[in-house]
Nucleic acid binder design. Structure first.
Lengths: 137, 137
DNA sequence: CTAGGAGCTCGACTCGACTCTAGATCAAGC
DNA sequence: GCTTGATCTAGAGTCGAGTCGAGCTCCTAG
């Protein structure tokens, strides 16, 4: 049960999202926070569970390579609310395709790397066999 | 049969590797070419099939996220030749692990993105059903 | 012989995404 | 009241990986 009314300081949010406080402020400047962060009497940022959730989504999007401007676009759409679902869906689908493609690329790279590793391993196996004076017919 | 003695200009290499001529010169400065590129009488670079092969490996390593300095390290070891196989193998294994981990990360991101897409799709399905005045019991 | 297209070097610039600094403010504990 | 540690803002700096430009040279086709 995530209590929707408990609030956090920027430091706590940093701890919970894995982002640095610098990055949190940076993201806010870049306009990728769901709603403008509230402030307490002293002017410091006050975050809610909602913000954490949104930030976690942002982290996922960034980790999977979505550029900041595109996250901003998504955020703007979400802020606008009703009527933007189509564009949001399109944006996510596009990203989905890119990530899928990238995974494919990485797999192809991995195959070659695995192959190269195999060559080196063979090299050492061979050396060992010779060292042991094995009986290769 | 790749003729090992045919040579190419930088432009041809660019066409064949997908790298720009700028990038080819940049890679050379960065020391990630197997051997110092030969030059013709006029001082222009002369590439061989070997260079192409090496560059293709570099492209794979870069695509899979190996930083340039690490490729340089690998290149240096390869240049030194005998006795460095162990370190080369270690380096490749490390990279293999990183790439594998990254693929895992991307899969995790993809799952969440897929989930989000599902939510939007449900939203539209629902809207459509209502529009059609369906008989949901 | 000359025009145009590649190439050359060196150094500067870009871009994206942070990351850090300075100098001020604030809140809480002693 | 004072200190200490967290926050604040605005703006500058960093880092990686290219990317580009200026000014020059060189080959080749017409």
């Amino acid at each position: 049960m995530t209590d929707n009314s408990t609030t956090m300081t920027i430091g706590e949010v940093a701890a919970r999202t894995g982002l640095s406080v610098h990055t949190l402020r940076f993201y806010e400047r870049e306009g990728i926070l769901a709603d403008p962060v509230r402030r307490d009497a002293g002017g410091r940022r006050v975050y809610t569970e909602n913000d954490i959730e949104w930030l976690n989504l942002c982290v996922i999007l960034r980790t999977s390579g979505m550029p900041v401007p595109e996250i901003r676009r998504y955020t703007e759409l979400a802020r606008q609310g009703d009527g933007t679902e189509g564009e949001r869906l399109a944006l996510l689908r596009e990203h989905h395709a890119r990530v899928t493609a990238q995974i494919g690329d990485l797999h192809r790279c991995l195959d070659l790397i695995t192959y190269k590793i195999g060559i080196y391993e063979d090299f050492f196996d061979e050396a060992e066999r010779e060292h042991a004076g094995a009986l290769t017919p």
